[in-house]
Design a protein around this nucleic acid. Structure first.
Lengths: 118, 118
DNA sequence: ACCAATAGCTTACCAAAAGTAAGCAAACTA
DNA sequence: TAGTTTGCTTACTTTTGGTAAGCTATTGGT
């Protein structure tokens, strides 16, 4: 039984629930990497500095924060901004694509409140 | 500077965006584990058998599928059902909590369509 | 009856990711 | 000038993920 391939392939809807969607997959694997969701959620509150993020997310190490921030920058969700004071001050803030994750974060938040055991 | 602790702690809103929310964190780390998001999304289309899932999600191995399904079962998002035919037939389907992830999946899907490079 | 294939897994092993610890330059603080 | 904070990087260990094989039970073919 080779998956009933002929009866699928609707062509009317690009991504029926119940199928595999590459973009969705890449998105969930990106924000699902360890700590990334928490970091993005914190950045929703406005620009944050490295150590602010570090102190806000319990258990997160500086090494991983650095790595995750660079990944998010690479994907265009976060921008790193250096304000040459002095003192120099580095802040991270969401780009437009990052900010537009807000409804996603919010609905997952509601789900978590309703269904996750504390 | 120890985080301006006194000026935070609003107590009016349980989880201001910009803070850390343990339940949100647990939720995003759960569905963000590798392949889990894709598996849940496929299950949104209705109950699926082990090998259906395996064939639908490209790159997913049987070992990891088995592991992820048991995790999701443990968290109560998925139920494993054995129909003793014969032939026996195992299917996996979302529970109520699993199904109620639908808006989350949908909004992340929209975001991915808009912002993820294919 | 015999052989191969498919479903639904488990076990063993190796590679990649994450966690831990330390270090480090530049700036500021006492 | 000694010590602290910021914003990282490098080295090393542990945990997680990936690959391959195997295994029982059933089904389909010859």
């Amino acid at each position: 039984m080779r998956q009933l391939k002929s009866s699928r392939q609707p062509k009317v809807s690009k991504h029926p629930p119940g199928g595999f969607c590459p973009r969705f997959h890449r998105a969930v694997e990106l924000i699902g990497r360890r700590w990334t969701g928490a970091i993005v959620r914190v950045l929703m509150g406005g620009p944050q500095r490295f150590n602010e993020l570090l102190n806000t997310v319990p258990g997160l190490s500086d090494r991983l924060l650095s790595e995750r921030l660079r990944e998010l920058e690479g994907e265009g969700l976060v921008r790193r901004e250096v304000d040459p004071g002095p003192p120099v001050c580095v802040s991270y803030h969401l780009t437009q694509s990052g900010s537009s994750l807000e409804p996603v974060i919010a609905s997952l938040g509601s789900w978590a409140e309703r269904w996750m055991r504390a």
